[in-house]
Design a protein around this nucleic acid. Structure first.
Lengths: 151, 151
DNA sequence: TTAATTGCTTTGATTATCAAACTATTTGAC
DNA sequence: GTCAAATAGTTTGATAATCAAAGCAATTAA
């Protein structure tokens, strides 16, 4: 079992690193060279659909609102994001994507979908269900672990 | 299928974020508060066993040698890493861990092993084999994708 | 023996990050 | 209704992470 644990672990680490490296290089060789991988994830967290507030996006990304404000300043300057003050509560800022931002969002989303698709097309129904089960189990463990930790 | 792709994808993203967040918080509430998560991964890449050169570790981490030099400067100052010039080729620097560095390495390694162990103990032999197969497949796709990309 | 190459370090610039101080707005207590 | 407290976001100052490019020292090749 220890051998298997070791092996699963190193696959996970390697997958993790590969995904980041590929995302980074894909961006750098696209028309969106001015976007870093962190900025890409910020764009992803802002999302295409209902506008999110600064606080909501910061929480989703696990950074402080100050950090997000700085990052959004850059993304606004580069033309990917727009800020709109809420009319209901003038303290609140709603973030959403520009046309260019939405284009990049879809590009990134497609990479993720292709990645998973290519993986599960090599599997039958039953196997992909087991993969899902494994991921759910891993996810459950991590959520429980997070609970137990101090903030 | 698209529903499933979406779901697997969001589990993967969530797992990645959780692992990072947990590693970060575990470090901050341990005796190793002066080590960031990036530094932790550098320590992990240097490893416990044969000493690695600066170039080798930089490649493993996917950063430039310049970046690694800076990071190693800090880790040496904090007492986790030692630099030894090779006697065979005086240009080469071998990196290895101090006693404190090895202690931290083992702590981090244990977190990773526990994470995987807890996941696969909920599965039978066959299921964990399928999980492994899924990971191998995903890994294969990523390696092929990396090949196709420009550097 | 010099020129080119290699391995690493340093430097300057940019981004990412946090905590803390700050501003503007809303809510709550009276 | 007014003022204090709370809330949402921004700014600032400090530090880490990162790269590309320039620089240095050692090795290899011509």
């Amino acid at each position: 079992m220890d051998r298997q644990v070791q092996q699963i672990n190193s696959y996970l680490v390697s997958i993790f690193n590969d995904v980041l490296a590929i995302e980074e290089r894909t961006l750098q060789s696209s028309q969106f060279k001015d976007v870093s991988i962190k900025e890409m994830h910020t764009i992803d967290a802002i999302g295409m659909y209902e506008p999110n507030t600064t606080s909501e996006v910061a929480k989703k990304l696990g950074v402080t609102v100050g950090t997000l404000t700085v990052s959004v300043n850059n993304l606004v300057r580069k033309g990917y994001v727009i800020r709109v003050r809420s009319d209901v509560d003038r303290r609140v800022v709603k973030l959403s994507l520009t046309k260019k931002g939405r284009l990049l969002y879809r590009l990134h989303d497609k990479f993720h979908r292709d990645m998973v698709k290519e993986t599960i097309t090599e599997m039958n129904e039953e196997e992909s269900a087991v993969l899902m089960k494994g991921l759910i189990s891993l996810h459950g463990f991590l959520e429980r672990t997070k609970e137990r930790l101090p903030d």
